[in-house]
């Protein structure tokens, strides 16, 4: 491109050509979505399988989520460094996922801390919860737990995906989030076992499938 004077029509045409060039340059690799989708699907489906088929892996399979955080951070930093430009959509999407990371971590802390603290606070006041088997009359200690927390996780899973889908006008993510919201309503009526199955399915619909579609588009773009 050389430095020359343009007439009015050429100017408008150049503006629209360059805006289109900038728009078509942005392609998400989908790596993070594939990683999160895979690990959530594996954790959810393995949790379901343990209850369904009566075996134990001997550790909390959801701890795999924390193992994935390290490569996730590495991927994000590497992708950021290699990007030659940043769109407004990408900046907004990054903030949405930052809020998601904070929220999901906060809920994990809530889940692990609140029941124990609630037990302790009751004991400090000289009280204890008991449960009675109405058939046998047996009375046992009852410990606080948070009912159907999986439903809350499903809502939180859907939030960044639908926001990303709407910001970037990417339908697979919007539909993935819609599936997640449907699973949320179903999970209100189901037991722990099926909640785990739904968390696994949410990982597939919400992240893994949209991530694979993004990856496919990215690879095609690289090949062009």
């Amino acid at each position: 491109m050389e430095e020359k004077e343009l007439n009015e029509k050429e100017s408008l045409s150049l503006i629209s050509e360059m805006i289109q060039k900038a728009k078509s340059s942005f392609h998400e690799s989908g790596t993070s979505a594939i990683l999160w989708g895979s690990v959530t699907a594996v954790c959810g489906l393995l949790s379901f399988a343990q209850v369904q088929f009566g075996f134990s892996l001997g550790f909390d399979v959801w701890l795999l989520i924390f193992v994935v955080i390290i490569p996730q951070i590495y991927i994000i930093i590497k992708e950021r460094k290699n990007k030659l430009f940043k769109t407004y959509q990408a900046a907004a999407t990054d903030n949405v996922w930052l809020v998601y990371a904070i929220s999901i971590s906060a809920i994990a802390f809530y889940q692990n801390i609140v029941p124990g603290i609630s037990d302790k606070l009751m004991l400090d006041e000289g009280m204890q919860l008991l449960q009675k088997n109405i058939a046998t009359g047996e009375v046992k200690d009852y410990h606080f737990f948070i009912p159907s927390l999986s439903s809350v996780y499903l809502i939180i899973y859907a939030f960044p995906t639908i926001a990303t889908g709407l910001i970037n006008k990417f339908k697979p993510m919007i539909w993935g989030a819609v599936v997640c919201y449907a699973l949320f309503f179903i999970s209100l009526y189901t037991s722990f076992k099926y909640d785990m199955l739904m968390l696994g399915l949410a990982g597939i619909a919400n992240w893994l499938i949209p991530g694979l579609i993004l990856r496919d588009r990215y690879n095609k773009n690289i090949a062009c």
């Binding site: 430095e3 004077e5 150049l14 050509e17 360059m18 060039k21 900038a22 940043k86």
Partner: peptide
């Protein structure tokens, strides 16, 4: 002017861009 307008049109579409990206486009 052609090149300056092209640069501005690219930059209005993105939050920020690297020199090599602008040169390529």
């Amino acid at each position: 002017s052609q090149l300056r307008l092209a640069v501005m049109s690219l930059l209005i579409s993105v939050k920020e861009a690297e020199f090599t990206f602008i040169r390529e486009k």
